[in-house]
């Protein structure tokens, strides 16, 4: 995975794991890889992975079972909230890009609808 060097690595690891959870690579209730495995797979420091996991434990999205490791929560409300959070981030990015291109907020829906109609066959 490529990391941006001007954003704390622990935040980027969190984002990476949130994505894996929402996209289904790490479904509800599954055990996530060990700290060291994640560190090596992502080529980051063990301490940084730990910091990210602690944060996710505090948020409740991960649950630590003693001696067994970390598991993705099965709390559907929390999982839905996580997904919404990722969607919001993408939308925020999109909105900001469009703003920079001179598109006003009240034209966004119209533009997007038009685009989707034109590209109806795209997957």
């Amino acid at each position: 995975m490529e990391f941006k060097d001007n954003i704390p690595i622990y935040l980027q690891i969190e984002q990476y794991l949130y994505r894996q959870i929402v996209q289904g690579q790490l479904p509800a209730g599954t055990k996530i890889p060990s700290v060291r495995r994640l560190a090596v797979d992502l080529t980051v420091n063990v301490n940084t992975v730990q910091r990210a996991l602690q944060q996710m434990n505090a948020n409740g999205i991960l649950i630590t079972k003693r001696g067994e490791g970390n598991f993705v929560t099965e709390d559907e409300v929390l999982l839905a909230k996580t997904k919404q959070h990722l969607l919001d981030m993408e939308l925020q990015r999109f909105t900001e890009q469009m703003r920079q291109l001179g598109v006003k907020r009240n034209h966004l829906v119209e533009i997007l609808t038009h685009y989707l109609e034109e590209h109806i066959d795209d997957r």
Partner: peptide, 29 residues
Amino acid sequence: QVLDEVVIIKERTILCHVPADQIRERGET
């Protein structure tokens, strides 16, 4: 990306010693 901390040495002494993610929290690389 694997660093916890950075120590910078300049002119024969230690100029600073900071956590790497603290630098990034300010938006710097």
